[in-house]
Design a protein around this nucleic acid. Structure first.
Lengths: 241, 241
DNA sequence: GACGATATGACAGGGATGTGACATGCCCGT
DNA sequence: ACGGGCATGTCACATCCCTGTCATATCGTC
């Protein structure tokens, strides 16, 4: 399931959070300093970061700003944790790029709720909720893709990569994704793979969707990348004689 | 992300600024003299310039005035850096064409905030927010152009160049752009392309907009260039047969 | 009406994408 | 250990469409 990076210097609190998150099914990594946190993120992008405001050395605030500034981590979902409840702090935190804000002490439920909410907003592919787009339905839990057919449903068989590709596209529909972005999000970041490889997998995915008449849902945007659209066939131009 | 040219003769200050900006994700170039700065700008237009007031040789003030005078750099966003806080200086700086003003010592936050604000103000197409003009709507994220039609929306298919051209026009509407300016902003700086080529792409763009009755939004300004206007069809003179 | 500016249509070249084939590596059953 | 099947990444080739330029037509202005 989703991976969470917890950046917190007090070991007791960090362990407590980790315990709760692991219990809820998350894959947790701990970092006690800003440097460690940075190294973790460099190694592998987590789905979400819980970031303590007060850290020895570089502050959480500066760390958030740093991540927001770099292209690779621009969209990293960040929740700030702080003992201070002042309005000024809140503004500073959000301005630095935090997506949400939690004041200690907080309840486990609130923590989990905010994580879910943020993931839903920023990285829906990390949730394993079923997704639908057009006639397609993809369920990560059962790892199954079905298409609504004239009579009954049609199952679509996909290889692992095509499955992840479709999952990402379905959780970010109507949006153009460059080949580089697809490599980052579907293959994992810093992989050294030819961008053209994306083309091949798009073709394979289209082939697999063909029996369900859904191949046209994946549009090529020349010079930009690919896009998944909800309507399979859209008649946009009507020339009335 | 955006490129910043820092013109500052004191190496320590220049490095400090560069460090902070790079940290925030900007692509930074340094220039220690007015001549260097001029060469940098000639080589490639930065997105924004931080210009020290006091420079050996030609002053920052004169440099700003120079850039404001040349067509290519007329709209270059400039932030003046100065150790002097007097009201008269501020007026002189803004009068010379600086867009904003920072008195040393300044905080990194203020610097970044002012850069963001200025970029937002002067280069709106840098953000990928959707733009609207008249019946048209252009969304960079989905890379789609739609036109409000009598019933439903009409999608307009554009090639990469026409898309960028329309994007630029829509983010700078109601304004005449010379062919040279369009080449700079849409094709990129320093391309050696016939100015007549702009005509051809304008025609192609008009053709594409025709089905949506929006071709007339792109007006030809004889002797000056082209302009995008909000009203699709303005009938100023109506001859009733 | 003449001239310069702009619109239009045609064209060749090249870059971007689609497609089929292939080598590799992994998993699994024998 | 061995061999077959599957998944995957890369390449070469085919194809499409975008693009810049030119020649010509049309327009607007003096």
């Amino acid at each position: 399931m989703s991976t969470v990076l917890v950046v917190e210097d007090e070991a007791a609190i960090a362990e407590l959070i980790a315990l709760n998150l692991r219990h809820a099914g998350y894959d947790v990594t701990l970092a006690a300093t800003a440097e460690q946190a940075r190294a973790c993120v460099d190694a592998a992008l987590p789905d979400i970061v819980l970031l303590d405001w007060m850290l020895p050395g570089q502050s959480g605030l500066a760390l958030a700003r740093h991540w927001r500034g770099a292209a690779r981590t621009r969209d990293l979902p960040i929740i700030m944790l702080t003992a201070r409840a002042g309005e000024a702090d809140k503004i500073a935190g959000l301005d630095a790029g935090a997506d949400d804000y939690l004041v200690k002490p907080f309840s486990t439920n609130e923590l989990l709720a905010r994580i879910r909410a943020l993931l839903r907003r920023k990285a829906p592919q990390a949730l394993d909720a079923a997704v639908e787009a057009g006639a397609l339905r993809l369920d990560p839990a059962t790892r199954r893709v079905t298409a609504a057919a004239p009579r009954g449903a049609l199952e679509i068989k996909l290889g692992p990569t095509e499955f992840r590709l479709l999952h990402f596209l379905m959780t970010h529909p109507e949006r153009v994704h460059s080949r580089a972005q697809l490599l980052d999000h579907v293959w994992g970041d810093h992989v050294f793979i030819e961008e053209r490889t994306v083309d091949v997998h798009v073709k394979r995915l289209r082939e697999a969707l063909e029996p369900a008449q859904c191949a046209a849902m994946i549009e090529t945007v020349r010079g930009a990348g690919y896009r998944l659209t909800g309507q399979a066939a859209r008649t946009l131009v009507q020339t009335p004689d």
